[in-house]
Design a protein around this nucleic acid. Structure first.
Lengths: 328, 328
DNA sequence: TTGTACGCGTTATCAA
DNA sequence: TTGATAACGCGTACAA
């Protein structure tokens, strides 16, 4: 492997000059620059990343710590982050925590030992409060990690959109299936929904609302779906809003297994707009998260020190499909 | 940040001794080792990974190059690989190629510049033949990359299992929807299926088999599904075997949109056993890939030089569910 | 068994 | 604008 020295020798300049050509920023006389570039070409010289890292104490890497990459929404997030990072010349080091706070801490500290440019964390449901000192920026996305800045969709507003959608369709017996109350995202989505439904409730036009706590996954949705739908149709809700698409798909599954038809017997709405939402039957009404914009927002303060890391909230968009309205 | 020098000073030993304690392999007198360990503890010393990398010319990283992490099967693969890598103290650097051969080459060379322990590639459908020289082992998994060793499920045998399953259920008008013929996995799955069906065909008990080329994704399955199912029921196949679960789910979708019931009007089988296969309605009969074993097999030759990197084929298992048999 | 000193390849400083 | 050279922190050959 050719080193910077070899290049310098071949171009008959000093290593300093080669380094300056490489950096591109400093001024170098044209004829020297050309000689250097030719030498680089001829020797197929690649700067040694480890040496560069040792000297500058930084590496072209962004760490991404995520509960589980097989969760479709996290996969979409990871892809968007990786793509955005790549456009800044950064690689992504991936770590799954399997929703285990201990693994989370271990992975984070191990990642920090590599002096990455920044660290992006999707917190596991019960995040530790282990103290983590570091000079590199640590941000969280979707699920807040400790007291780090959080980039996420406007969960409250998204839930409000869903609430208004269901209410405007005439539903007056509504069930909300919440994410874990020990997660910020779970609470905010729930509270936004509940708040808006309460607001829409009048003496003349009352709305019955029941709320169930759950986890974000499919199985929980299916289980709670069965619980709810086992009741006689007069007391059963006519619409279910879920804190995630996965819950919603679980509910639809339960409905189908009980011979109920969606949306006629039961309207169902989700949150996130994971890819399978469009594959489910019927297709799922949901709030689409602006994943690419979220990725940009979380990478920006890492790559540009002039951008202060702070909470960012982006609007989601209501995607109306067959699980709440019949048509087409 | 404390350096090895600080530790040495505090423990009143030389840096050599500290290094030896760190390595753990060489002999160090117990009382010195204890002093060193105490100093490490007190100073919260962490070896500088960049310096270590420069010195040893290796980094605790395995590169993973994948077409698209949001593909559920690749996500499962990535998770298994990351978990297995972590158990060897390695991190995974992730790169999506978006199925673009040019991006693939670029990402691979960029990754190799970081001197990872090894590189695992799931090739994009039309892999380049760009020459890639490197000392680090490059393996492929699921989809072969150039002429690199491939770790994958026994695709031929899996297809044979599906063929036998459908045939034993009495289907004699069968359609196979193939993956891209320019991928090894697409061809092998198709050929295995076709071959076994031909073998099962006798003069007295003929089997009609039609084969359609496709891509691995949902949309292709849906489209071909509509093509096939638009035919009158007398000429239409009674069973469809698909080269991937995604195709199969697309076919089921087409069937449903046409008012056909699965499995009564049409049996459908997939391949891979992605998580949503169990969520589809009806649940999908498929071949389960042993992802964890695949991950182990691909990491082994990277972490243990005494294991030669070579093609590895592992058996998949037939998972029979509601998309081919009525019951429960 | 321990300590010393050199070199890994780069960037940054400083003098020319 | 260029060149010489000193770090960066660690591992290891070699001397003690």
């Amino acid at each position: 492997m050719a080193t910077i020295r070899d290049v310098a020798k071949r171009a008959e300049v000093s290593v300093g000059t080669v380094s300056r050509v490489l950096a591109g920023t400093k001024a170098v006389k044209t004829h020297l620059r050309e000689r250097v570039q030719a030498a680089i070409e001829e020797l197929d010289y690649k700067p040694n990343q480890s040496a560069r890292a040792l000297r500058t104490n930084r590496v072209d890497v962004i760490g991404l710590v995520i509960p589980d990459i097989t969760n479709p929404f996290f996969a979409q997030l990871a892809k968007a982050i990786e793509t955005e990072a790549a456009s800044h010349g950064q690689f992504v080091m991936l770590a799954n925590t399997h929703d285990d706070p201990e693994t989370e801490t271990r992975q984070i500290t191990a990642l920090l030992d590599r002096t990455p440019r920044g660290l992006i964390v999707v917190a596991s449901s019960d995040s530790t409060d282990a103290t983590i000192g570091s000079e590199v920026p640590i941000l969280s996305i979707d699920r807040r990690f400790q007291d780090r800045p959080l980039v996420c969709v406007d969960n409250w507003e998204g839930s409000v959109q869903i609430a208004e959608h269901l209410h405007s369709l005439g539903h007056r017996r509504i069930c909300y299936i919440s994410g874990p109350p020990n997660t910020e995202v779970g609470r905010v989505r729930r509270d936004g929904f509940v708040h808006r439904i309460r607001d829409l409730t009048t003496r003349n036009d009352p709305v019955e609302l029941e709320v169930h706590d759950s986890r974000f996954n499919f199985e929980s949705g299916e289980k709670i779906g069965h619980d709810i739908l086992s009741r006689p149709s007069e007391t059963r809700p006519t619409a279910v809003a879920a804190a995630s698409d996965q819950i919603a798909i679980g509910v639809m599954r339960a409905a189908r297994d009980r011979g109920l038809s969606v949306p006629m017997d039961l309207a169902v709405a989700g949150f996130d707009d994971i890819d399978v939402s469009a594959l489910a039957f019927p297709r799922l009404t949901t709030i689409r998260q602006p994943v690419n914009a979220l990725a940009k927002a979380v990478i920006a303060p890492i790559m540009d020190v002039s951008i202060e890391a702070q909470d960012v909230k982006l609007k989601g968009s209501l995607i109306v499909r067959g699980s709440t309205v019949t048509s087409r």
